[in-house]
């Protein structure tokens, strides 16, 4: 009932979050710089173009996912503990305004983040991509939004920033182990495969692999994209359910 939204309030919230990031140069630098630095490291650690071509795209989807998860969970936790969320809940701000404000702001930010890593990867690091750059950007930004949505949801279960940071390994690392990055999902034990099938990161990594290997936008890729988008919307809906106007 109270989770209606208004485009004006959502836009104001997006602008406000972007203004906060603008003031925080260090965070901005880390957000854009760290994934690029990791990709450069990765390229020279592998030292062979072929291996980098295989692993690189998967990590290109993974880094924004992980970083957005952390930033979104700590950011919303600050709003919960700092009282600003409570203030907003006494105003006409809808729960969706709040969540979509974060989604749009971090979506824009991930576009910059992915853009920079991509330019470095495709030029300097010589990443060989079979699919189109557009589909890679689409998938990477979706991965970032998925991380953000899961982070927003996870923050509801943290009371302190200490706990919120711990959620990163708890929510994210099992997904990393099971997403097919270390071992192909086909060669996993059946029960692990089943778990892997219901974890969103598996689809994110699969989509990145397809973009790097397949020249056309296949139906399998479309399916991956839809699943990632579905998980993102689901996590946002769950996140909205955890926002309460009234608390004890």
């Amino acid at each position: 009932m109270s989770s209606v939204m208004s485009p004006a309030i959502t836009a104001a919230t997006t602008r406000r979050i972007l203004a906060q990031l603008r003031h925080d140069h260090r965070t901005l630098g880390l957000l854009v710089g760290v994934p690029s630095l990791l990709m450069i490291l990765l390229r020279y650690v592998f030292d062979t173009g072929a291996l980098f071509d295989r692993i690189g795209p998967m990590l290109l989807g993974l880094f924004p996912f992980v970083i957005m998860f952390v930033v979104a969970s700590v950011g919303t936790l600050r709003e919960r503990t700092g009282g600003t969320l409570e203030r907003l809940m006494t105003t006409p701000t809808g729960k969706l305004d709040f969540l979509l404000g974060y989604a749009f702001a971090f979506g824009l930010l991930s576009l910059v983040q992915v853009g920079v890593v991509l330019v470095i990867s495709l030029t300097w690091l010589g990443l060989d991509l079979a699919g189109s750059v557009a589909s890679l950007v689409l998938v990477a930004v979706l991965d970032a939004l998925l991380g953000m949505a899961l982070g927003l949801f996870a923050s509801a279960f943290a009371r302190t920033e200490f706990q919120a940071v711990q959620f990163m390994p708890a929510f994210v690392l099992p997904q990393v182990l099971l997403c097919g990055l270390l071992i192909p999902r086909d060669s996993m034990a059946p029960w692990l495969r089943v778990i892997s099938d219901v974890l969103p990161l598996s689809y994110a990594v699969d989509a990145m692999q397809r973009v790097s290997r397949e020249a056309s936008f296949s139906t399998s890729l479309l399916w991956d994209v839809l699943v990632i988008a579905g998980f993102t919307l689901g996590a946002l809906a769950l996140g909205a359910a955890t926002l309460r106007r009234r608390t004890g």
């Binding site: 104001a12 919230t13 602008r15 406000r16 003031h23 925080d24 700092g82 009282g83 203030r87 006409p92």
Partner: peptide, 21 residues
């Protein structure tokens, strides 16, 4: 105080003002 520590006074007021129309 429930205002954003990383925004200026004016940015805070602009945001809350926009939310309240």
């Amino acid at each position: 105080p429930a205002v954003y520590a990383d925004l200026t006074v004016r940015e805070n007021m602009r945001y809350f003002g926009a939310v309240l129309r």
